[in-house]
Design a protein around this nucleic acid. Structure first.
Lengths: 174, 174
DNA sequence: TCGATCATGTAATTGGTTACATGATTGC
DNA sequence: GCAATCATGTAACCAATTACATGATCGA
């Protein structure tokens, strides 16, 4: 999903500035995507030119002025169209698999060490997601809750599968 | 894993031209990555300039001449270094999850239809991988066989998890 | 004769990231 | 006084894709 769709989606719920979009995004969306100001601000400018969103300058006294964007009717139509496009399952670009593919080129201890460290890091992420669960559930709608559940299941599966691979590569001599 | 590492890895096994690299890549690596000529040829040129690989022009009579690249000692060292870097688990950029996140904005039938079509497409991919299994196993080393097994397990888990999500969204009224 | 395979390459575009630049306010 | 938060933006860079350009050979 590209930045345009995401921003349209978030602006459907509430008018916001680029700064606020980034914040909201970091809370609710962080697990499966990530955006930086360097892409948000140019995207908003472009979308305004295309008539998908409107900008209103909000003068603030104790903080810098902010540009509050709201979605237009045209933007809503565009968002609907984008959501209804068929989903093609993307190639799973996995650093883990790419590395494993070339494991014959490094020493056995090195292999075990690498996979073990990787396993720790994904377990860690799973725990982080577990911890964030109540907070996310508070602001999420039913579908977003399903997102979270899906993410947790996939993380658990990932842990299981990496563990299996670790066992297997321990058995490979040489 | 970036293109440089992949090309170095493949060239460790055998000296090859860009065209041959692409072919080999498509067979053994296609499941978890993908490269086009538009990235392979410039990458090879750059790597040659950096001294990671050498080029030898092979004059052919019944086909266009080809540039056969072979890895240098410096290239081997670089490849070793790259393989030993710790793996950081990347963010899982999932179109499915991004779409699900905004599912409240489309009709129920639309949602079910979309997920159902998606489910079919990943089942299809799983079958394709299953079919390619014997062929891949023939040319793969033990670690590459583990890659395949890992991929198959993850695909199966994916199917299960999408099915669960489908059931859940069927139950959500509105 | 038409499409597939062999073979290399460039240009334009996509879709971002990171670093840089600015500057006020608030809390410790 | 220093770090964090608020707030916007540009420039340089990265890593790739797609489309375009060329052209020979071989098999059905």
């Amino acid at each position: 999903m590209n930045i345009k769709t995401i921003l349209l989606g978030l602006l459907t719920q509430k008018s916001m500035s680029g700064y606020e979009l980034k914040k909201l995004f970091s809370i609710s969306f962080s697990y499966f995507s990530g955006l930086s100001f360097g892409s948000i601000y140019p995207a908003l400018k472009k979308m305004e030119q295309q008539g998908l969103i409107n900008m209103r300058l909000e003068i603030q006294e104790n903080a810098p002025n902010k540009k509050v964007y709201s979605i237009t009717e045209q933007g809503k139509d565009e968002f609907q169209d984008l959501l209804k496009q068929p989903m093609q399952s993307e190639r799973y670009r996995s650093e883990f698999l790419s590395r494993l593919f070339f494991f014959s080129h490094i020493e056995k201890e090195e292999r075990v060490w690498l996979v073990d460290a990787y396993l720790k890091s994904i377990k860690d992420e799973k725990h982080q997601l577990d911890d964030a669960r109540p907070q996310i559930n508070k602001i999420a709608d039913p579908f977003q809750r399903e997102c979270l559940l899906f993410g947790l299941r996939m993380k658990a599966d990932m842990v299981k599968n990496v563990e299996k691979t670790l066992k297997a590569i321990r058995k490979i001599k040489k």
